[in-house]
């Protein structure tokens, strides 16, 4: 069933893509094949594959049990939040905050998680930012201290 739903979604994507891509015509053209042909060809083939996926009855997907799936969804949201807060909070705080729940998922104790989070945040900041010269965001609050 999962494959069929995905096939349906991909079919809609390819139809929408062809619809949008149809207008990709340059004002002046110097070549017989413009910017439109290749994406349209790919989308057309994708559409065919999507239909094949929808027609195929047997499914090989085994989803994880619901509680695990919920944790995976949460993990995704945590990484997303981490990405959003990466430069607002600064690397150290964001990393420590991200580490604590993620480490809990993988069986760390509270103490390990908190210490691990602070350790990773501070350790990696100094390793990358100071040692390897890979600039990382300090966050607005730390600019004054570490600047």
């Amino acid at each position: 069933m999962s494959e069929r739903i995905l096939g349906g979604v991909l079919l809609l994507v390819s139809i929408a893509g062809i619809f949008i891509g149809w207008n990709y015509v340059p004002p002046v053209s110097y070549e017989p094949v413009g910017p439109r042909a290749f994406p349209l060809l790919v989308l057309f083939l994708l559409g065919i594959c999507a239909i094949t996926l929808m027609l195929d009855k047997k499914s090989t997907t085994t989803w994880a049990p619901t509680p695990v799936l919920a944790r995976i969804g949460l993990l995704f949201l945590i990484v997303l939040a981490y990405a959003l807060l990466f430069d607002k909070l600064g690397f150290i705080i964001a990393t420590a905050l991200m580490t604590i729940p993620v480490a809990r998922f993988f069986g760390g104790t509270w103490k390990q998680c908190v210490l691990g989070g602070i350790g990773l945040g501070v350790g990696m900041f100094f390793f990358f930012d100071r040692l390897l010269d890979v600039a990382l965001p300090t966050g607005l609050w730390l600019n004054g201290i570490l600047g």
């Binding site: 990466f86 480490a103 069986g107 760390g108």
Partner: peptide
């Protein structure tokens, strides 16, 4: 342990992209 490895990998990956 995985509880240290996974957040570590997540952080290193995002550092690289950023």
């Amino acid at each position: 342990p995985n509880w240290l490895l996974v957040p570590g990998v997540a952080a290193v990956s995002l550092v690289g992209v950023y």
